[in-house]
């Protein structure tokens, strides 16, 4: 009886817990991302190395933003099922999408006064922890050059 509880009820409980909190957290995160992205719409951001300055440059600074984010237990199961049938692993693509956008926003928020961001790059790495079996936890690093123009 105890074995049944340990093998069936606990994983199921964690699945439901993961699904409930995970989907709520994701919705909240996306709302926050969309709201903050609107604020940065006017600031040009690109990955070009050489650019035409729109004025006299006052200073340049390195901008870094990073985030470590994990997928919930329910989505991890979905992704595991996907491995059987193949196809797009949407559970992980939403994870990577929000991690990238969050890292990008953090990079920009490091320099709120910047006029332009150039040479932006993104770096992805997997955080392997024994708890997740090395799956579903990623770190995204976004970095670029913040350009500050001289105010006329």
């Amino acid at each position: 009886m105890i074995e049944i509880i340990a093998n069936l009820v606990f994983p199921l409980f964690f699945l439901i817990l993961g699904w409930w909190f995970g989907s709520r957290a994701e919705k909240k995160h996306y709302r926050s991302i969309r709201r903050r992205e609107r604020k940065w719409l006017e600031i040009p951001t690109s990955n070009v190395r050489t650019f035409i300055p729109q004025g006299k440059i006052q200073k340049v600074r390195l901008a870094i933003g990073s985030v470590v984010i994990a997928v919930d237990q329910f989505k991890r199961l979905l992704a595991g099922l996907r491995n059987l049938f193949g196809g797009e692993v949407s559970a992980f693509s939403s994870l990577l999408d929000r991690a990238r956008r969050e890292a990008m926003l953090r990079m920009k928020e490091q320099h709120p006064e910047a006029d332009e961001f150039i040479n932006c790059r993104m770096e992805t790495s997997t955080i392997s922890s024994s708890a997740s079996g090395g799956k579903g936890t990623v770190e995204i690093l976004a970095y670029g050059t913040a350009i500050f123009y001289q105010t006329k």
């Binding site: 993961g18 995160h29 470590v68 997928v71 237990q73 969050e102 955080i127 936890t137 770190e139």
Partner: peptide
């Protein structure tokens, strides 16, 4: 890892 979301400890560490 169960509920998902940001791992602040890891973010700071990195």
């Amino acid at each position: 890892n169960i509920v998902g979301g940001e791992l602040k400890g890891y973010t700071e560490l990195l």
